[in-house]
Computed example of a mutant assay.
Amino acid sequence: MKILKTILFVILGIVVICLTAALFIKKDYAVEKEVVISQPKAVVFDYIKMLKNQNNFSVWAQMDPNMKKEFKGTDGTAGFVSAWDSENGNVGKGEQEIKNIVEGERVDYKLHFIEPFESTSDAYMTTESVDSTHTKVKWGFVGRMNYPTNLMLAFMDMNEAIGKDFSTGLTNLKGLLEK
């Protein structure tokens, strides 16, 4: 019985230490990747502002070609929603809504993940002219993990976890637009 009490005390101590540590760990995270595409800014922006086009370059859309997709509204305008439902745990279920468009410059999205876990994050894509035939595209993602789940950020590199998928997606986008 004494051994059981000791084990229980040690486990309780570890839990208390973890919960205390989570008080001091950051809650916000951000990831941003970029690529230069050999196309004029207007061509690139007209393509990326259409949310359905993400299905052509996004790593997550390519993970499950059989996922169920539903669209609401007018693509390329604020309020347009793209919803997905996948059996693949890496894709899950959720929806993405265009929240704001600054024509020729930026598209802001709200991501609502439903499965495998519930969360909401913001994402964006921006375009910037490098010269008349080259455009820099940035794809970013910002989010927040509330206490105590923020403890995961001490062990997770969000830039590595999400950043590599953004980089691959941007490479796919470059390949599509430079054909």
Score class of each variant (00 low, 15 high):
Gly143His: 03
Lys164Leu: 02
Tyr47Ser: 04
Tyr124Trp: 13
Ile101Ser: 00
Ala161Trp: 09
Lys68Ile: 14
Glu34Val: 09
Lys136Pro: 01
Leu8Asp: 01
Glu70Ala: 06
Val15Ile: 15
Val43Phe: 05
Ile3Ala: 02
Lys2Ala: 04
Asn172Tyr: 14
Lys33Arg: 15
Ser82Gly: 09
Leu153Arg: 05
Met152Lys: 06
Asp122Leu: 12
Ser86Lys: 00
Glu115His: 05
Gln96Ser: 12
Lys138Asp: 00
Trp84His: 02
Phe45Asn: 08
Ile7Lys: 03
Phe141Lys: 11
Glu32Cys: 10
Ser121Lys: 07
Leu19Pro: 00
Lys26Gln: 11
Leu151Thr: 08
Trp139His: 05
Met158Glu: 12
Ile3Thr: 05
Ile98His: 03
His134Cys: 03
Met125Leu: 07
Ile101Phe: 03
Asp165Leu: 00
Gly175Cys: 12
Pro148Thr: 05
Lys174Trp: 04
Trp84Arg: 03
Pro116Phe: 14
Glu103His: 10
Asp64Phe: 05
Glu128Ile: 01
Thr20Tyr: 12
Leu176Met: 12
Tyr147Lys: 13
Lys93Trp: 07
Gly175Val: 11
Ala22Met: 08
Ala154Ser: 12
Gly163Glu: 07
Asp64Tyr: 01
Glu32Leu: 07
Tyr47Pro: 05
Phe80Arg: 00
Ser167Arg: 12
Ile7Leu: 11
Gln39Met: 02
Ile7Trp: 09
Val91Trp: 02
Phe117Cys: 05
Phe24Lys: 08
Glu105Gln: 13
Ser82Arg: 11
Lys164Asn: 08
Asn90Ser: 06
Thr133Lys: 14
Phe9Thr: 05
Val44Glu: 12
Gly94Met: 07
Asp64Pro: 04
Met145Asp: 14
Lys72Cys: 04
Val36Asp: 03
Met50Gly: 05
Gln54Arg: 12
Gly104Ile: 11
Ser129Asp: 14
Glu34Asn: 14
Lys2Asn: 07
Leu177Met: 13
Asn88Gln: 04
Glu87Arg: 09
Ile98Pro: 04
Gln62Val: 01
Thr126Cys: 00
Gly94Asp: 13
Val130Cys: 00
Lys110Thr: 07
Phe141Ala: 03
Ala61His: 04
Glu105Ala: 11
Leu4Glu: 09
Asn53Glu: 14
Phe9Gln: 04
Lys41Thr: 11
Tyr109Ile: 10
Tyr124Gly: 00
Phe80Gly: 06
Val137Trp: 02
Phe57Gly: 06
Asn146Ala: 15
Pro40Trp: 08
Met50Ala: 10
Gly92Glu: 02
Thr168Asn: 10
Lys52Arg: 15
Arg106Val: 01
Leu176Glu: 15
Glu70Ile: 04
Gly175Gln: 15
Met1Arg: 00
Asn53Arg: 10
Pro148Glu: 09
Pro148Gln: 11
Gly143Gln: 08
Phe155Ile: 06
